[in-house]
Design a protein around this nucleic acid. Structure first.
Length: 365
DNA sequence: CGGGTTTGACCGGCGC
DNA sequence: GCGCCGGTCAAACCCG
């Protein structure tokens, strides 16, 4: 499995102290100080204030550096744990006998033939869900693992229904991910065929999707998602196959055990592609202020903090507190932030600026 | 030619 | 045990 695809490291944080940049500001500061020194008390106080500010920024920079180190260490620890787990799993996954299904599993996912490994980007948890093991043995451990896996999948089932053109026979729901159709079936309770999709972007992504038109209203397409993506969205989501410009539609999100929640949304086309705008000003919604705060004060790659702040938000919304909805919001936020080059540039500039300041102040890295 | 789709066959769970 | 049914497989086909 390609680990780098799971962790977005495109933000270049590898600062290299450049001699020219390192020296120039120092000289400027020194000359400024010598020029200022001893002129009058006001200027002296200003100098003291500046020095205090520099010290404050330096300590802040030190904290940032420590945080960065901790993040890198955590990432390496997780990575090592995963490598270790997969190497042990590959050692016992060599029994290729058995049904067609098992054979196909080992072929389609050679690196992960016996387990579903799901790195959850949003909470930095490494979810290792034991998959189907050798069929010849049926120990309690295995059955419990199977149960756990089933529960794990069950807990992440999301049903999304959306209004589309009834004349459009394609069961394509453009949700920002890349899907590969692997089957179609006419079910007993619905004359409209049900299409089965599998996420094709990442080889180890366990997410599946079932798409079927509603029996009551054939203009409504119901998509059932199972599992969680272990990779970022490939493109911006659209609301449906027949959405063109500025068509207002209604996106319904349902959890497996919950009630259907209707999220008013409108789709627009801009230069970078269509986007879904959730109307969170409707009743029962999280205050916009909270959403903005969460958005602007949390790291784009750290869904953990976003999730926490959203969950602990005082707003009394119902579907906003649902993990699926939060997950959706988190993905939207993370995607929009990480794909924004200006945001990356600003963040990189801010961090590198502080480090340069720190270097100037201490003369060391 | 590689990747996606179609479609008939197969598998496993479940109810009777 | 048998049949039904949903889910999945995989060969054949299609398409860019």
């Amino acid at each position: 499995m390609e680990f780098t695809s799971l962790v977005d490291t495109s933000l270049d944080l590898s600062f290299r102290p450049r001699p020219v940049l390192d020296k120039l500001p120092k000289q400027e500061v020194q000359s400024d100080f010598t020029g200022l020194r001893g002129d009058n008390m006001g200027v002296k106080n200003e100098t003291v204030d500046l020095l205090e500010e520099l010290n404050r920024v330096s300590s802040e920079n030190k904290k940032l550096t420590e945080m960065l180190t901790v993040v890198c260490e955590n990432y390496n620890v997780l990575r090592n744990q995963m490598m270790e787990y997969m190497s042990t799993q590959n050692g016992v996954a060599d029994d290729s006998a058995g049904s067609r299904k098992r054979k196909a599993e080992s072929i389609s996912n050679p690196n992960n033939s016996n387990s579903n490994v799901n790195i959850n980007n949003n909470n930095n948890n490494l979810d290792v869900v034991p998959g189907r093991s050798s069929e010849s043995s049926s120990s309690d451990e295995e059955s419990s693992c199977k149960k756990l896996r089933e529960e794990h999948i069950k807990a992440k089932v999301t049903v999304v229904s959306m209004k589309t053109d009834a004349s459009d026979t394609s069961l394509i729901v453009k949700d920002g991910y890349q899907w590969r159709k692997y089957g179609q079936k006419v079910t007993r309770d619905n004359p409209c065929p049900r299409a089965y999709f599998r996420c094709s972007f990442a080889p180890g992504c366990p997410v599946k999707k079932k798409v079927q038109r509603s029996i009551e209203d054939q203009s409504i397409v119901v998509a059932t998602y199972e599992g969680e993506h272990n990779h970022p969205r490939t493109s911006k989501p659209e609301s449906g196959p027949s959405t063109n410009t500025s068509t207002a539609s209604r996106l319904n999100v349902t959890t497996i055990a919950g009630t259907t929640t209707s999220v008013p949304c409108s789709t627009t086309l801009n230069s970078s592609g269509p986007t879904i705008t959730l109307d969170l000003t409707a009743p029962k919604t999280v205050e916009k202020r909270d959403m903005k705060m969460n958005h602007s004060t949390t790291s784009p790659t750290s869904g953990n903090s976003i999730r926490t702040t959203t969950t602990t938000s005082a707003a009394g919304g119902e579907y906003q507190n649902r993990p699926e909805f939060q997950q959706f919001l988190i993905e939207q936020m993370a995607t929009s932030l990480t794909k924004d080059p200006s945001f990356k540039a600003a963040l990189a500039a801010a961090i590198s600026g502080k480090i340069l300041q720190h270097n100037n102040q201490t003369g060391r890295w």
